[in-house]
Amino acid sequence: MIRLQNIEKVYRTDTVETLAIDNITLDIAKGEFLSIMGPSGCGKSTLLNIIGLLDEPSKGSIRIDDQDTSRFSDQQMAKFRNQKLGFIFQSYHLINDLQVLDNVELPLLYRTSSAKERRQLATEALEKVGLSNRLKHFPNQLSGGQRQRVAIARAIVGRPQIILADEPTGNLDSAMGNEIMDILINLNKNDGTTIIMVTHDENMAHKTHRLVRLFDGSQVQ
């Protein structure tokens, strides 16, 4: 499903060159739930961003669903992200000016679908994460756990094959974290969604199929 080959990422300033990812090769199978762990600054999020096509590697290639993503134009990249990928961020990144339902509809705006269809799909996604009673609320009227569930609904509303979650439970207490984790496990199990999750939490990581450990930009496990 996803094939990373000899990925390297270097951040350059005028004086310093920092190697964030050092020659990582990784295959992720369809339907797999993979977690990436490692100390702060080891390149976990950078790797996740590269897989999610949010950042470009300095070297190496990424193939997703048998397509070489390095040749994509801005338009193709946008379309690919919209149809194949879903993102969950540690700090939710909901748009505070929009109601929950509008936030969840967001990925569908960049597809050809009617307002009615969008509304229906967004409502279904919110039902899936148990928030069907909060459609008209604004994000700042919700708790952290609820916000993350809205973010999950937004990530799954377009039925992507891959979900990339960057510390989805990082800002939550353990009870809330477990709830979010259960939702992700169900998504993986029931819908066959491939999930790649960056986490600091060993317990969460052990609930996934496979664990990849990074240290100073290199894969150590």
Binding site: L54, A78, R81, Q83, H93, I95, P107
Partner: peptide
Amino acid sequence: SSEIGVRKAFGASSRT
């Protein structure tokens, strides 16, 4: 900035 990032992540092209 965050909104722009989110929109791009979820499929908005520069043109959009």
